[in-house]
């Protein structure tokens, strides 16, 4: 009885060893992370916490933004992109998450894609959200056309207190 179990266990360990052999043990290339590493000290949370929990921060922020109209906080996806992704790669082309829009191949030069490609993460943030800070300011909000006598606090609903 136990012999059978031990055999099974040994077989499993051996098998997983064989399977893992095929995996690439190399880490994401450091050179690609130049921008990220340069800014890791200034990040809103410690690097180790961000590495494991960034998706949780973003997920909580999405509800606060959609339902509560809370914008411009430190855990916003837009803030991540604006800080970590340069508008253009070294050859001057816009730096997008996907290298090829048709095949869906990830662009390892993009900060998010660097690790996601390595960890084989499939995410859909950038199916809707902007993956590049260059789109910031495309909208004509430079005119800063403020509503007369309406501050941001009042806009949140404090005007009749």
């Amino acid at each position: 009885m136990f012999g059978k179990a031990r055999f099974f266990l040994t077989a499993m360990i051996l098998l997983s060893g064989i399977i893992l052999q095929g995996c690439d043990t190399s880490h994401p290339p450091e050179s690609r992370l130049k921008t990220a590493l340069a800014k890791s000290e200034q990040c809103v949370e410690p690097t180790a916490l961000m590495r494991t929990n960034h998706m949780e921060f973003i997920k909580h922020m999405q509800d606060d933004t959609v339902y509560g109209g809370i914008r411009g906080t430190k855990h916003e996806l837009k803030a991540c992109i604006n800080c970590h992704v340069p508008a253009a790669s070294e050859d001057g082309k816009p730096l997008n998450y996907l290298k090829d829009n048709e095949t869906g191949e990830l662009n390892e030069e993009h900060f998010c894609a660097t690790c996601h490609k390595y960890a084989v993460v499939k995410l859909n943030c950038f199916e809707c959200h902007s993956d590049n800070p260059q789109n910031e300011g495309v909208a004509p909000n430079t005119a800063a056309h403020k509503i007369p006598a309406l501050t941001s606090a009042q806009a949140k609903g404090g005007s009749h207190e």
Binding site: K78, C128, N132, P133
Partner: peptide
């Protein structure tokens, strides 16, 4: 879709409509 505006996320498979520029209203703009 690609290259969406930062304040106006839009994507395949979802329905969309006028948002009364909610991102601007939240900032106190029109």
């Amino acid at each position: 879709l690609f290259d969406q505006h930062a304040d106006s996320p839009r994507g395949k498979g979802t329905v969309e409509s006028c948002t009364m520029c909610v991102h601007r209203v939240d900032e106190g703009k029109e």
